[in-house]
């Protein structure tokens, strides 16, 4: 039995070392922070869209994510450094089916289902700070 115990302890120790090696950090290179959050429009989560953080002058990172079921998450290695950003939230309509694939680019822009005040003419700005990396956007 003693030998069995010894082996058990050795294996447990090894497992602890292996698991500890997998721990992640929430800060990326250059002080980048992982960003996450939720987006709702008129009370319901945006099913499919995108969110972009447009850096203000002096800020050296730009980033964003696709929004799926009202959620987004930017990993730390592609995250944002602390600073002020304009936030652009879009959910584009499906383009016309008449576009010819691999042909001339279509002339008409695709319509955004979110009002321009949240994307092209965004009034949303956010300051990213350590400890303030989770954002909840409630658009109406």
């Amino acid at each position: 039995m003693r030998r069995a115990q010894g082996a058990g302890i050795a294996l447990t120790g090894l497992a602890i070392v292996l698991v500890a090696g997998c721990g992640g950090s929430s800060t990326g290179p250059g002080g980048r922070l992982a960003i996450s959050g939720t987006v709702t429009y008129k009370g319901s989560p945006i099913q499919s869209g995108s969110i972009e953080f447009v850096p203000h002058p002096g800020v050296k990172t730009s980033g964003g994510d696709m929004i799926t079921n009202g959620r987004f998450r930017i990993p730390a290695d592609k995250g944002l450094e602390p600073g002020v950003y304009t936030v652009k939230i879009s959910a584009l309509d499906t383009p016309r089916a008449t576009d010819e694939p691999g042909g001339l680019p279509g002339k008409d822009p695709v319509k955004d289902t979110i009002p321009a005040k949240y994307n092209e003419k965004s009034i949303l700005t956010k300051e990213v700070k350590p400890g303030e990396t989770n954002f909840e956007f409630k658009l109406d």
Binding site: G64, D65, M66, I74, K78, P105, D108, V110
Partner: peptide, 10 residues
């Protein structure tokens, strides 16, 4: 980027 490419409508 985790941001989407923007493929023009052609």
């Amino acid at each position: 980027s985790t941001l989407p490419d923007q493929m023009n409508t052609g």
